[in-house]
Write a protein that binds this DNA or RNA. Structure first.
Lengths: 200, 200
DNA sequence: GTCTATAAGATGATAGAC
DNA sequence: GTCTATCATCTTATAGAC
């Protein structure tokens, strides 16, 4: 594969990534992607065989990146408290740059239930990650680590997903919204750790 | 009023509601809606003038119902603690019946930023609801009621939005997922109230 | 590898009969 | 109000020149 191949294929992927995220699969046309990538429509089918296959490729990279990032953070060689802060910081950074990502991912996973979720190793991550072993030791009786971990992701991710509703409801502009999210960097770990038993 | 008496416009709306929620706007065709409603394609444009207008009608009803339900709950004449429990119960009931709703709403609000959010009176709700006055008195110093209320919705709604990821990651089936959500009915109010100052 | 041209079919919307 | 038939356009995908 020559450099030219890679560049063209990557330009198509970059354009598709942007457009799928902005408008979803259904409303993005292959023509748009080709135009945005500065190439001809036929090339899109030359590199990827169909719109669907192009989507699968993009989606796997996006979700896979999301997960493997988590994988690294949750096996990090720091204290439990630091890992919590890393996860929160990492996702607030990511979602500040791409606030559309959670809705896009969740919505497209819903619409493409096959192929996307299965091959991610998500189950293995939860079963084996160091973070979950530590979390299990800190869970109050009768509460599973999964319940608690759901809370961490909920508190971190949901406000970005609901950004249009939140700004509409509060009258906040984009900058004020971002200030709220910055404040949450410090608050979420506090709230989260207060759900656990104290360390020993 | 019998099932037979339901007029055509409502059958179309019901079909559209189901299909838009299942597949989103972009992947739902007017032909499908007409077929599902048991009417002809032309009728859809007779009652509503376009696919877009039909969507706006549906979306306004769905989101409006969501909000006005909240409106009632947040002005209820019970204790603060009871209102918290009502909100959690109400949304867990709703999302158990329609787990697709949060992703659908958030995703379509993103794709149709106009017309949907503005005319809902969401801002007024937050400004005036009894619940928020009580919440403001209980907020720790330096934390706004909006931040705390976001947490309540995050903890309640996000797990339903992420249902496919959660089941894939944990290996849980639908029934096990539902049991987790049932457990959250009791846990979320506890977690939530622990973020506040004690009542006086 | 990249292009032009076009096939083959789906889509939203409308005209007009009844 | 409801139907059939159809239009104009857009869609994905491919054939074939260079």
């Amino acid at each position: 594969m020559t450099t030219k191949d890679i560049n063209t294929a990557n330009r198509i992927k970059a354009a598709a990534n942007r457009l799928f995220a902005e408008k979803g699969f259904g409303r993005t046309t292959t023509r748009e992607i080709a135009t945005e990538a500065g190439v001809n429509l036929a090339l899109l089918n030359y590199y990827f065989n169909s719109k669907e296959e192009l989507f699968q490729t993009i989606m796997f990279e996006v979700v896979g990146g999301f997960i493997s990032q988590l994988q690294v953070l949750l096996n990090d060689d720091h204290s439990f408290e630091q890992k919590v802060q890393f996860v929160v910081d990492n996702y607030i950074n990511l979602l500040t740059a791409r606030p559309d990502l959670p809705v896009f991912m969740l919505s497209e996973i819903r619409n493409h239930p096959h192929e996307v979720v299965e091959r991610l190793g998500l189950e293995k991550l939860i079963r084996e990650a160091l973070f979950f072993k530590e979390l299990a030791q800190r869970c109050p009786e009768g509460i599973t680590p999964v319940q608690i971990f759901m809370n961490l992701l909920s508190l971190t991710i949901f406000p970005f997903a609901a950004k249009p509703l939140i700004t509409a409801a509060t009258g906040a502009d984009g900058q004020q919204f971002q200030m709220m999210m910055e404040q949450r960097r410090k608050l979420i770990p506090i709230w989260f750790l207060s759900m656990l038993r104290p360390a020993n």
